[in-house]
Design a protein around this nucleic acid. Structure first.
Length: 576
DNA sequence: GCCGTTTTCGGCCCGACTGTTTTCAGTCG
C-alpha cells in the first residue's frame, strides 16, 4: 500500500467524521496525519515492516493514526472506515463539491431528507423541499442548484502554467486602473504549487469601487460570486475562481503574508505569535496588552511581519509547514532561472520534436544557455520515430560538425533518451551508449507493471555504467495519470550509490521528481538535473516551471547540475 | 486526535461574507 493510498483513507475518515459532527479538532488531526504521510519520503509500508513505533516520530502522527496505518498496511482495509461508510454512504460526499455547501448543511440534507446523490439533491431543490429545513431558505436552494452544475463540470485544479496566463492577464488588467496603487498575486500561485485551484489578487487602492468594477470587467468573467466592502470573488467561464482583496497600505504586507499561506504555515506562525503575546491577522501584527488592548506594531511589508517573530522572509515556495521553520536561521539560497546554464533533455525532428537540431541550438543560445544535450527517443519508441544505432550515430556526427563551427562559447552534448525495455535492459547496445556524452534512461512502456518489476527495471538502468541520469523518474502526468508503482527510496539509494543524476522534468504536466523527492535527493547528495524535455522551441521556456518545483524542494544552484559550468559538469558525469 | 521551554490536561488561527436570523451559524480561505 502506498503512502498516497493510506493518506487517502485517512482523509476519507476525516471527511466522514466531519459529516457525522465529530469534534473538529479530531477531524483536523486526521487531516494532519494524512498530510504528514503523503509528504513522507519513506514508505509507510516499509516502516511498518521494520518497526511501527517509528511512525510515532512523524509530526502529526500519534498513537491512533499509527495504529490505523498498521492495520491498513497489514490488512488492506480499515474497520473504522467501513463503520463510518455504513453510517454515511460515500456518494453523500459528492455534495461537498458544491460551493457553499459544507459538511453541516450536507449532513442536514442527508439526515432530514435522506438525500444521497446530486440527482436527488437537485430534485429536492426543484420541489422546494430544501427550503423547509431549518437554516435553509429560497436563496440557499438557488445557490445549491447553481452549485450542482459547477460540481458536475468539476473544474479540476489547473496547471501552474495555465494559472500564470490568467494571473498575468488579470494583473495587467487591474494595473490599468488608476485607483490601483499596489498589486500582488498571492495564494498557491505565489507559492508555485504544481496545480492551482483559484487565484488570489491583493490590491492597495484609493477607490475600492473603481477597482471592483474594473475587476468585474475582466474578459471571461461569467459570474460575480460575492462583492463586499473589501472582498470580491468572480468565476470565469473556464470555471476558475479569482478572489480580490482590497487592503490598506499599512496592512499590505500582513495581507500578502496571510493570503500567500499556506494555511498550515500560517497556523504555525500565528501559534508562535500567540506565545510571544502577539496577534497576527491580515491587517497586521498586534501586541496584546494585559488589559486586552491591541497595539499595531507591523504590517506594511512582509519583511516587517516576519521580523516581529525574529523570522526571515521565507521564499513563498517554502511556506508549506514542512521544514522551513527549522531552516529559519539559515535559509537555502534557492535556485533561480538565471542560474540555469544548460538544458539536458530535448527532442528534434529526428524523432518526435517539431524543430531541427540547428533550430533548437539557436533557440537555446537565444535564451542565454551555454550548453544543451540533444536527447531524441530510442528505437523502441517507434511511434515517435525513435532512433536506431545508425541514425543515432549519424546525428552525433552532425553534432560533432556543429560543435566545431560553434567554437568555445556553446556546446551541444551528444545524448539520447534511451528506453528502459519492458523486460529490463536498455533499448540500445552498450557499444553505442558508450559513445554518448549524456544518456537519459526512461520508462515509456509497461508502466502498469508491479512495484517489483518496474523498480527492478529502473535499478537495472542505474547499474548500467553508460547511463547518466533517470528521466521523469515517476512517470506521472498531473491530473491525467498516476506515477508508476516505483519504489523511489530504492531508486534514490541506488542513484546515490552509483553516483547517477536524477531529472526533474520541467514540463507542467510532469514536474517529477516532485518537491518531496527533490528534498530527499538533496539530503543524499544526488545531483538533480532540471530539464525541459522540449519537443519544440517554445517549450524550452518550460524551464521556469521546473525551477519553481526545484525551489519548492529547497534546491540551491549547487544541488542542480545544469547550473554548473560545462567543464565541471563534464568532469562529474557519472558515465565517464 | 495530537501535543508539550506555562506538559499528561486543556488548548487547538482568524476574519469576511452570506443567508436566515433578530444575534448567529455555516462556509470559505
Amino acid at each position: 500500500m502506498t503512502n498516497g493510498q493510506i493518506a487517502d483513507s485517512l482523509d476519507l475518515v476525516a471527511d466522514l467524521l466531519e459529516f457525522t459532527g465529530a469534534n473538529m479538532f479530531r477531524v483536523r488531526a486526521y487531516r494532519n496525519g494524512a498530510r504528514a504521510i503523503r509528504d513522507l519520503p519513506e514508505s509507510v509500508t516499509s516502516i511498518v515492516a521494520d518497526d511501527p513505533q517509528r511512525l510515532l516520530d512523524i509530526d502529526g502522527v500519534g498513537k491512533s493514526v499509527c495504529e490505523k496505518c498498521v492495520v491498513l498496511v497489514e490488512t488492506g482495509e480499515l474497520p473504522q472506515l467501513n463503520d463510518l461508510l455504513q453510517q454515511v454512504p460515500r456518494t453523500v460526499l459528492e455534495m461537498l463539491r458544491i460551493p457553499n455547501l459544507g459538511p453541516r448543511k450536507a449532513a442536514a440534507l442527508y439526515n432530514e431528507l435522506g438525500i444521497q446523490t446530486l440527482e436527488q439533491l437537485q430534485a429536492a431543490c426543484e420541489e422546494g423541499r430544501v427550503r423547509q429545513l431549518k437554516g435553509f431558505g429560497e436563496k440557499t436552494e438557488a445557490v445549491i442548484l447553481k452549485g450542482i452544475a459547477i460540481a458536475e463540470s468539476a473544474s479540476r485544479r489547473i496547471y501552474w502554467s495555465t494559472a500564470n496566463d490568467y494571473a498575468q492577464a488579470m494583473k495587467q488588467h487591474l494595473e490599468a486602473c488608476v485607483a490601483v496603487r499596489k498589486i500582488e498575486l498571492a495564494g498557491s500561485y505565489r507559492r508555485g504549487r504544481e496545480t492551482i485551484g483559484d487565484l488570489d489578487v491583493l490590491v492597495v487602492a484609493d477607490e475600492v469601487n473603481e477597482v471592483m468594477d474594473r475587476f468585474a470587467d475582466f474578459a471571461g468573467v461569467a459570474d460575480i460570486i460575492v462583492r463586499g466592502e473589501t472582498k470580491m470573488s468572480v468565476r470565469l467561464e473556464s470555471g476558475l475562481q479569482i478572489d480580490l482583496r482590497v487592503v490598506a497600505d499599512e496592512s499590505f504586507g500582513a495581507a500578502l503574508q496571510y493570503f500567500t499561506g499556506s494555511k498550515d504555515h500560517n497556523v504555525i506562525l500565528r501559534g508562535m505569535a500567540k506565545q510571544q503575546g502577539l496577534k497576527i491577522n491580515e491587517y497586521g501584527v498586534y501586541r496584546v496588552h494585559d488589559d486586552g488592548a491591541e497595539e499595531y506594531i507591523a504590517g506594511a511589508c512582509e519583511k516587517d511581519v516576519y521580523a516581529t517573530l525574529q523570522l526571515p522572509v521565507f521564499p513563498p515556495e517554502l511556506r508549506e509547514a514542512r521544514r522551513e521553520f527549522e531552516w529559519a536561521d539559515d535559509l537555502p539560497d534557492l535556485l533561480t532561472l538565471a542560474d540555469v546554464r544548460g538544458d539536458l533533455h530535448m527532442h528534434t525532428t529526428a524523432s518526435d520534436g517539431k524543430a531541427a537540431l540547428e533550430e533548437m541550438v539557436a533557440a537555446a543560445r537565444q535564451r542565454g544557455l551555454r550548453y544543451i544535450a540533444i536527447t531524441d527517443h530510442s528505437q523502441r519508441v517507434s511511434m515517435a520515430n525513435g532512433l536506431d544505432p545508425p541514425r543515432l550515430l549519424a546525428q552525433w556526427e552532425q553534432i560533432d560538425e556543429l560543435n566545431a563551427r560553434l567554437g568555445d562559447d556553446f556546446r551541444v552534448l551528444k545524448g539520447i533518451e534511451c528506453d528502459i525495455l519492458e523486460a529490463g535492459g536498455m533499448d540500445l547496445p552498450d557499444d553505442v551508449l558508450s559513445q554518448a556524452d549524456w544518456v537519459l534512461a526512461s520508462v515509456h512502456y509497461g508502466q502498469s507493471q508491479s512495484r517489483e518489476q518496474i523498480t527492478e527495471r529502473i535499478l537495472g538502468a542505474i547499474e548500467n555504467p553508460h547511463v547518466s541520469c533517470i528521466a521523469h523518474p515517476t512517470g506521472r502526468l498531473i491530473n491525467r495519470r498516476d506515477a508508476y508503482e516505483v519504489n523511489m527510496e530504492a531508486v534514490l539509494q541506488a542513484a546515490r550509490d552509483r553516483g547517477k543524476f536524477l531529472e526533474l522534468n520541467a514540463s507542467p504536466a510532469r514536474l517529477d521528481l516532485h518537491d518531496g523527492h527533490c528534498a530527499a535527493a538533496k539530503e543524499l547528495g544526488i545531483p538533480i538535473v532540471v530539464s525541459t524535455d522540449a519537443h519544440s522551441i517554445k517549450r524550452l521556456d518550460d524551464m521556469q516551471y521546473g525551477v519553481l518545483q526545484a525551489r519548492r524542494g529547497g534546491l540551491t544552484p549547487a544541488d542542480v547540475a545544469n547550473t554548473w559550468p560545462l567543464d565541471r559538469l563534464l568532469e562529474q558525469l557519472p558515465n565517464r
